[in-house]
């Protein structure tokens, strides 16, 4: 892609810096690379068609009520290829979006500002932006769970320690968690470590998806420690599965002997 060069003297400068800011300047090349990654994303053309600047997206945006965030601004920055503005928005603003997609349901031009935010989040991760790492830190427990089990949430993760603002009692009937779980009339839910019992083969299949779709690479960029932990678990479970398969072969052999 090409971006139109600014007409002022900055055009030939290699770095762009705010004279009154102490922030490190960002390379023009880096800015262009970021925009390149955004605009070549498979979702991009589907989510951005133009802009009437009508503001219906911001009008209906929950985050705009509480943050310095406006989906219209995101669309405008991308549509006008404002590279500095895009980079700036990726530091904090894109993480304010609540991903409700009301903006997309309302936009008269058929844009999806929420979808564009997702593209920018993916690119922030691809570039290993510090801001993204910061923002994702509290997410690591959930990330570990979903990567290793295919379940986003587990009953034993919801404790008053982790959710003090949800009150002292996770259940209004007092009993050990494992008993309460077994008292759910669905056999698949008699679990503590995962939201439902997940077949071992299912997890193994999921690992292949993580590897072949580039998700593991994303994780490695963002959090190397977490990446190591996840890979260890993956290896372990794959071994378990191999063992089980071998056992089956043995059983089959036994059957043949009979």
């Amino acid at each position: 892609m090409t971006t139109s060069a600014p007409s002022n003297a900055k055009a030939n400068a290699t770095v762009i810096a705010d004279p009154v800011s102490a922030d490190a300047p960002v390379d023009r090349e880096e800015l262009e690379q970021i925009f390149d990654d955004i605009s070549s994303h498979p979702r991009y053309d589907h989510e951005l068609n133009g802009c009437l600047n009508c503001g219906i997206c911001t009008a209906t945006c929950p985050s705009a009520h509480y943050y310095d965030y406006s989906p219209r601004e995101i669309v405008q920055l991308l549509w006008t290829e404002n590279l500095e503005g895009i980079h700036d928005a990726m530091q904090e603003k894109i993480w304010a979006c609540a991903q409700c997609y009301t903006c997309a349901a309302r936009c008269p031009f058929g844009n999806s500002p929420g979808g564009l935010v997702m593209v920018m989040r993916e690119v922030a991760i691809k570039h290993g932006m510090e801001s993204a790492k910061e923002v994702l830190r509290p997410f690591s427990r959930v990330m570990l769970k979903v990567m290793s089990t295919g379940n986003q949430l587990a009953p034993n993760m919801i404790t008053p320690d982790h959710f003090p603002d949800w009150g002292p009692n996770i259940s209004k009937v007092e009993a050990p968690l494992n008993i309460l779980r077994k008292a759910i009339p669905m056999p698949t839910l008699h679990t503590l470590e995962t939201a439902w019992a997940v077949n071992l083969k299912t997890s193994i299949e999921l690992y292949t998806i993580w590897e072949d779709s580039g998700v593991l690479d994303q994780l490695e960029t963002m959090d190397e420690n977490l990446f190591d932990v996840v890979v260890d678990i993956m290896d372990e479970k794959r071994e378990d599965y191999e063992d089980w398969l071998e056992e089956q072969d043995d059983d089959d052999d036994d059957d043949d002997d009979d």
């Binding site: 979702r43 989040r121 991760i125 994702l136 998806i209 580039g214 998700v215």
Partner: peptide, 10 residues
């Protein structure tokens, strides 16, 4: 949607 980890392929 929460973390940005994942993609359309996954």
């Amino acid at each position: 949607h929460g973390s940005g980890i994942g993609n359309i392929v996954s």
